[in-house]
């Protein structure tokens, strides 16, 4: 357990030195700030647009950090051979993989927390400077429900990290990145797969779509941005089930990643 935490700590420390997450966080914050300018161009819907853009940048940049750091987590150590010295220490390969995962998830949580603070700062500024248009806002500016959307974004990003880590245990970083981005995209078409039966008549096609729906990571349920922005309720049940699903699915990926990684030869 301690070894795992130490590996996680090293990941965190290394990522603090890495420029990639910084630039992503900065970019996200810039985008949120820019949404203020964009909102000046739209009548009445400014708050909605700021929230849309803020949540979308968190989701996209969180995902990009997860992918670009996630694919390098294991493969970089293998490629540069730093793993040789590490695995000669009293660390099991399982602890190594899980530690890497936890380290990156911790990094992401911190990054998203920073983005969240910046997001609320922009919203607070809007709230203070807003005039009568406040009356048509579908939800208050500093709506705590935004945190539900952010929580699910973090959960989604944790699943994406597991996907990236899984691929990086056996393929090159570039291929891992492509596969992860592919699965991420597919994951957001989950509902289309689920509703395939309403569009197509062919029973085998519907069956295939069903299987894909359940086997591929289904990321659409993690996306409650629109509901939250419009001030519609998000059922606690839904959040709980989706978090449980994220945990189980990440578990599937991590188990597979560990199983593959334990059998590998490091030439």
């Amino acid at each position: 357990m301690r070894a795992m935490v130490l590996v996680a700590g090293a990941v965190f420390r290394e990522s603090v030195r890495d420029r990639v997450p910084y630039s992503m966080v900065m970019f996200a914050i810039l985008l949120m700030a820019a949404s203020y300018a964009i909102s000046q161009l739209t009548a009445g819907q400014d708050m909605k647009i700021i929230k849309d853009l803020g949540l979308a940048s968190m989701s996209v940049f969180g995902m990009l950090i997860a992918v670009f750091l996630g694919i390098g987590l294991v493969s970089k150590e293998v490629e540069r051979k730093s793993i040789f010295a590490l695995l000669a220490k009293p660390v099991t390969r399982t602890q190594f993989v899980l530690g890497k995962y936890l380290g990156l998830v911790a990094t992401l949580v911190i990054n998203l927390a920073v983005m969240t603070l910046a997001f609320y700062a922009v919203l607070a500024f809007m709230d203070l400077t807003a005039g009568p248009e406040k009356l048509v806002w579908p939800a208050p500016a500093l709506d705590p429900r935004l945190l539900i959307a952010i929580l699910l974004i973090i959960a989604e990003v944790a699943v994406v990290t597991a996907v990236a880590l899984f691929f990086s245990t056996f393929s090159s970083p570039l291929l891992s990145a492509l596969l992860t981005l592919g699965l991420w995209t597919a994951g957001h078409f989950g509902s289309d797969l689920r509703n395939f039966g309403t569009v197509v008549d062919s029973a085998p096609m519907i069956a295939i779509a069903r299987v894909l729906y359940y086997v591929l990571p289904n990321l659409a349920p993690f996306d409650v941005k629109a509901e939250v922005v419009h001030g519609f309720p998000v059922a606690a049940r839904h959040v709980a089930y989706t978090l449980a699903y994220g945990g189980l699915y990440a578990g599937v990926l991590l188990t597979a990643a560990v199983a593959i990684f334990r059998r590998r030869d490091f030439k």
Binding site: S191, R194, Y213, Y214, V215, N218, A220, P221, D223, V224, A226, E227, F232, A235, R237, H238, Y241, T242, A244, Y245, L248, Y249, G251, V252, T255, A256, A259
Partner: peptide, 22 residues
Amino acid sequence: VAVLLAGAVGVQVVRDRGWSPY
């Protein structure tokens, strides 16, 4: 992997009863 995946599918089935994408 099989057990966890079964769990994930189960959770999805239950969740999807009370949820459809916005």
